[in-house]
Amino acid sequence: MKAKKLWDVFVQLFCIGLALVILFPILYALSVSLMDQRAVLAKPPNLLPPKVTFENYRIAFTRTTLWRYMLNSFIVALLCSMSRMVIATMAAFAFSFFEFKGKRLLFALTLSTIMVPPDVLIVSNFTTISRLGLINTYLGVCSIFLVSATNIFLLRQHFLSFAKSLKEAAYVDGCRNIRFFTAILLPTSKPILTTVFLSSFVSVWNQYVWPMLVTNKNELRTIQVGITMLKDRESSIFGPVMAGVIMALIPTVLLFLVFQRRIVAGMMTGAVKE
C-alpha cells in the first residue's frame, strides 16, 4: 500500500515536471515580455528577467488599440464558434439519423473541404465578400469561418454511437424531429458540443490572414493583426511582441481552463463508429 502511494507521488511529480517542460515555451515568452530589450538575447541567456519591467506592455497598449482588437477577436470568435456549433450539429444530425439520396456523396464532399488548401481560395472569397459589400464588417470577417467540416465529422461520429433506438423511442412518444433534436439530442451531447465550441473558438481567435484582408479599418482589426504590428521586422525587438502574445493567449487559456474538465469528461465517449 505504501509502495503504491509512493508510486503515486512519483507519477504526479513526473507529470508536473513534464507539464513544465511542455509549458516552457509559453513561460519563456512570459518571461521575455517582462525583460528589457538588452536582456532578451544575452550571454549567458536569461531565463528570468534580471529586472522586471512592464515597459513592453505599455508599448503594446499604446502602439496598438489592443483592447479593441481583443474585443473584435472575441466577437468574431464567439459568432463563428456559435455558428459552427449550430450548423455542424444540424448537419451531423442529418448524416446520422436520416437515410436519403446522395447521403454518401454529400458526406464525402463535406470531408473533402478539409483537404482544400484554404489560401488559394482567399482571393476568390475576397471577391465574393467584396461584391456582397461585406468588406469591413464582422460578418465579412466571420464568413469563411461559419462552418467547419471537422466539427461535422466529429459530431457525426458521436451521434452514430448515440443509440438509434433512442430516437425510435422518442418517436413512439410522438416526438417530432425538431423536438427530439432540441430536447433530447442536444442536452445529452453537451460535452462534445463544448469541445466543438472551444476548439472553434481557439481556431478562429488565432486566424490572421483572412481577417486582415477583409478589414481595412483599424476599428475592425483582430488581435493577431495587432501582434504583427508589434513585431519589429527591421530591428527584431522581441519584448513588445511577446507582451502581445501573452495578452492574446490569456483569454483562450482561461476559456480552456474553465471548460477543460467538461471536455475531458465527455469527449469522444462513443468515438468513431460506423
Partner: peptide, 15 residues
C-alpha cells in the same frame, strides 16, 4: 498537469 499537457492546443502557430 492535464492543463499543462493540453494548453499548447490553444496557441496560434504563427505566435
Amino acid at each position: 498537469y492535464e492543463a499543462g499537457f493540453a494548453v499548447p492546443m490553444a496557441m496560434a502557430s504563427s505566435v
